[in-house]
Design a protein around this nucleic acid. Structure first.
Lengths: 287, 287
DNA sequence: CTGCACTATGAATCGCTAA
DNA sequence: GTTAGCGATTCATAGTGCA
């Protein structure tokens, strides 16, 4: 069984314990900005960038050159406006040395109902992808999705246009190198992720559903790679990382969260010491 | 029939002809950076903000205090990174006096295919909502969508094909026969819009499908209100505005586009002079 | 009018090579 | 060095025509 390292404490301080260039994937959902001063994790919107930059500097240090940082974030509405701290954060992180490679959209399908006089329900969040360099590890085949039904009839006989487009040098498009398409059942996904928010978890509200970190962990890491979540909360990404055989590192300042994740990820430790290989093999079908 | 004002020329110069506080809704899709070079000359990503700010200043001037500005835009990839001109534009427009009220996501279900070593297909674009003040006109009831339960049971009785065809209807409420759903259980939509790009239309490529401007025009204006598109292109928003009885103002620098939109929006002018009411009524089924 | 097959096409990006 | 051009790669949808 792969290791799990859990740290109880402030993200900035605990990150100092990690070595340079040691993490393959950072995926986290930091505490959202909050105007209430004294709630857990609440950072005032106007101070958000200032608060996060030292942390992202540490993250830049611990991430391998080929690694990826996925930041789940969404700006709050303040005084009827979307606050700009996320935009400013992206610009500031670029100055820090990060590359803003991509922005995925998480479309939350079963978002809670609600109505406001001049605003609809907010059913999406940003999943910002940052990298240290243009070349990074990505295992696209691990997250392929079934093609639409259209493919069955469509690929049986390519249309006139499909063939013509192949000949035409100007128009690019479907039909080039048709051999690639014979028997193709799966397609590459897009940068929009449709996932319902988790509602089955009774005891705690997870930041995101398991499928979300699972998707990114499969996309950006191999078995045995290291996944870091510096704001693990209820530990969804840590738990998923363990399940699919990644080395997980989790940090949280809240003792209840820390204990809960520790318990969940260290079940029957003594028993498993001798049986880890077997356990790991059997556990594969669980995903 | 409501008026249509078309201007042939540069957006910045033609906007000067419009009066202060005279427009209820601005909806436009300006040329993206380095895109559409043949018609708009192509704006370099690094100069995009600088190029757009004088235009947005004019837009701020002509928009009514209760009006809304919807800006359709997406940053392109430059050297493996998402360029930051859109983020910078939002920050700069706020300094200009705009409020960044909301960001809708347009999920383009049929995006262009493609595969790259470190990137998936880009299936979404931003629809930035800007306002002059916190209180603006919004007619939320005009864009309600059928609710889950009822839609599910109703659709289950339909054939496989119908089900597939109507999926978009259920998700987004942008179905054509939306009137059939009125009186059923309706819900307010979200800030994620699921719509395919237009694909059947030969001869001209529209920036967005008709249902997109239609949705925003219904949401932010009443009959007789004024809708402005300073980069009308093939005129989708102008045409829709006319169809649903809004006063439309369109600007484009390209003579072919101008002529095409003029022809399309001024059919059989002489005949219609006497029969405009009848024509308008009959024309409803055209959509 | 419905069901089905067929067709056209959409704001793309990367890496290599030539100038 | 720097840029510009071009080949290679890749899906999903709506409209049309016809039985």
């Amino acid at each position: 069984m792969v290791d799990i390292d859990l740290y109880l404490g402030d993200a900035l301080q605990e990150l100092a314990h990690l070595e340079d260039n040691s993490v393959d994937l950072i995926i986290t959902s930091p505490p959202y900005a909050d105007q209430r001063k004294h709630t857990y994790g609440g950072i005032h919107p106007d101070e958000y960038v200032e608060w996060f930059l030292p942390i992202s500097e540490q993250l830049l240090r611990v991430l391998k050159p080929t690694g990826t940082f996925i930041l789940n974030i969404k700006e709050r509405v303040v005084s009827g406006e979307r606050h700009t701290y996320v935009l400013e954060l992206i610009l500031a992180m670029r100055k820090q040395g990060w590359l803003w490679t991509e922005e995925f959209i998480w479309h939350k399908k079963n978002c809670y109902p609600g109505k406001w006089p001049n605003r609809f329900r907010d059913t999406w969040e940003r999943l910002l992808q940052f990298n240290k360099q243009r070349q990074f590890k990505m295992y696209q085949e691990e997250v392929m999705v079934p093609m639409g039904d259209w493919a069955q009839t469509r690929l049986r006989k390519l249309s006139e246009t499909d063939l013509r487009r192949d000949e035409s040098k100007v128009e690019s498009g479907f039909g080039k190198n048709i051999s690639n398409w014979i028997g193709r059942r799966m397609a590459y996904p897009t940068n929009v992720l449709h996932m319902a928010t988790e509602c089955g978890n009774r005891n705690h509200s997870a930041a995101f559903p398991e499928r979300l970190p699972e998707w990114f962990i499969n996309l950006f890491t191999e078995e045995g790679d290291t996944v870091l979540d510096p704001f693990m909360g209820s530990g969804t990404s840590i738990y998923v990382a363990q399940r699919i055989q990644r080395h997980a590192i989790g940090i949280d300042i809240n003792h209840d969260y820390y204990s809960m994740v520790y318990e969940a990820t260290h079940p029957k430790q003594a028993f498993l010491c001798e049986e880890e290989k077997t356990y790991a093999a059997n556990n594969h079908s669980k995903g």
